[in-house]
């Protein structure tokens, strides 16, 4: 119990005693999405999609970037807007 309290206080101190991203869980979920984004938008995943394969006539890299970008935004919205 004590350790949980300390962890919460630490995170709050880090985020600034927060009312915006209401819980440490939300902030952490967003940070996780940040890491996911870094992974989605960089080497080596890009190289996987950059093989010149077409996706219904469109370049697969282009489709992958736009789709994963939109998916990331949707998830960010979901994290922020839904309750805990």
């Amino acid at each position: 119990m004590i350790q949980h309290g300390v962890g919460l206080r630490l995170i709050q101190a880090l985020v600034g005693g927060d009312i915006v991203i209401r819980s440490r869980l939300k902030a952490q979920r967003l940070a996780f999405l940040f890491l996911m984004g870094c992974f989605f938008f960089n080497y080596p995943l890009l190289s996987v999609f950059n093989q010149g394969v077409d996706f219904f006539g469109l370049p697969s890299l282009y489709v992958w970037l736009m789709a994963s970008w939109l998916a990331l935004i949707v998830q960010m919205a979901w994290v922020v807007e839904r309750g805990d």
Binding site: V15, C38, W69, M76
Partner: peptide, 24 residues
Amino acid sequence: GIGYLPIYLGPTLLFALAGFVLVK
């Protein structure tokens, strides 16, 4: 080609970190 995209992916990632950086 798609080289114009990173300029907009970066800010997207920044806002995922908003809870830690911008709020503060």
